[in-house]
């Protein structure tokens, strides 16, 4: 085989989508002894167009609501049979922050030995860019249209899903960004070295929904971290989060201007100020003045 990633080409994800990059690196670390449970969403739909699949390891599609429940069941059944494998659950932000939250909460609370990965493209992309609980303030989506009535776009702040997992005292929680590959790989390796429920929040460029240049996918999420908007941190067993990368704190406009979904904000500095205030407050809570 010319191509020995556990994730095969020939899938139908858009050119420049970051989700497959996240997946191929996680599987490379997890290895062949892995079972993947995939909630509905772009990653599931576009990698398994029947009768074909891009996955080179056992994989099962389940509904949004029960991905974490099915992963819990697989883990419990394997334990009973005395078998061991890395069980990974992949869910989008809609599938995780909103629809699958209850099953995820139960999975973590019961202490199942599963790694849950939320690939976060900040909207329901597969059905046409509808806002989710993880859509950031100020983003245009097809259900947070920008116009005379609402000049802002999405008016609610992003749900802090990873922090919610810390509050559950999950064994390991981390935010990860493939643009920071060394930090990314270290955290994935650490996640596989710890027993219990683990959660990774991976930012994932969606050129289609973010209205961005497909070639800039890595550059854009690098800016998300360098502006402080997507901080990289980790936490074990509910302990206070530890920042794992100190950003350059570039002006957030550098990030916003790369994406059509924020274009309207650039003409309305008052809303950009509001994002900056929230950003300052988050970093202040974690001991950093910006």
């Amino acid at each position: 085989m010319k191509n020995d990633w556990l994730f095969a080409p020939g899938h139908g994800m858009c050119a420049g989508c970051a989700a497959p990059i996240i997946v191929k690196h996680i599987l490379a670390i997890s290895g062949e002894n892995t079972i993947v449970v995939n909630a509905t969403g772009c990653l599931e739909v576009a990698t398994t167009e029947y009768p074909r699949t891009a996955w080179r390891i056992p994989w099962v599609h389940v509904a949004f609501e029960n991905a974490a429940a099915v992963a819990s069941g697989i883990e419990a059944a394997m334990k009973k049979q005395g078998e061991k494998a890395n069980i990974i659950c992949f869910g989008g932000d809609g599938g995780t922050a909103d629809i699958g939250m209850q099953a995820l909460s139960g999975m973590v609370e019961r202490g199942h030995n599963v790694l849950y990965v939320m690939y976060d493209n900040e909207a329901y992309m597969n059905t046409g860019i509808q806002r989710s609980g993880a859509t950031p303030y100020g983003a245009w989506t097809t259900t947070s249209e920008v116009g005379m009535v609402n000049p802002i776009g999405n008016i609610r702040p992003k749900k802090p899903v990873a922090e919610i997992m810390v509050a559950h005292r999950a064994a390991y929680v981390a935010t990860v960004n493939i643009a920071f590959l060394r930090d990314f790989k270290r955290k994935v390796e650490k996640a596989f070295s710890i027993d219990g429920p683990r959660f990774l929040h991976a930012i994932s460029t969606c050129p289609t929904g973010w209205r961005s240049d497909p070639s800039k996918g890595i550059e854009i999420i690098k800016l998300a971290t360098e502006t402080g908007l997507f901080p990289l941190w980790e936490s074990e067993h509910g302990e206070d989060i530890k920042i794992t990368y100190k950003p350059k704190f570039l002006p957030i406009e550098e990030y916003l201007k790369t994406q059509g979904r924020f274009r309207h904000l650039l003409k309305q500095p008052e809303y950009i100020e509001r994002i900056k205030e929230d950003l300052k407050a988050w970093w202040r809570r974690h001991g950093v003045e910006i």
Binding site: P9, Y50, T53
Partner: peptide
């Protein structure tokens, strides 16, 4: 709807 051949998406020449 089981796909029996892992990684057979390589048949799709994207």
């Amino acid at each position: 709807a089981v796909v029996e051949e892992a990684g057979n998406s390589i048949e799709n020449k994207t």
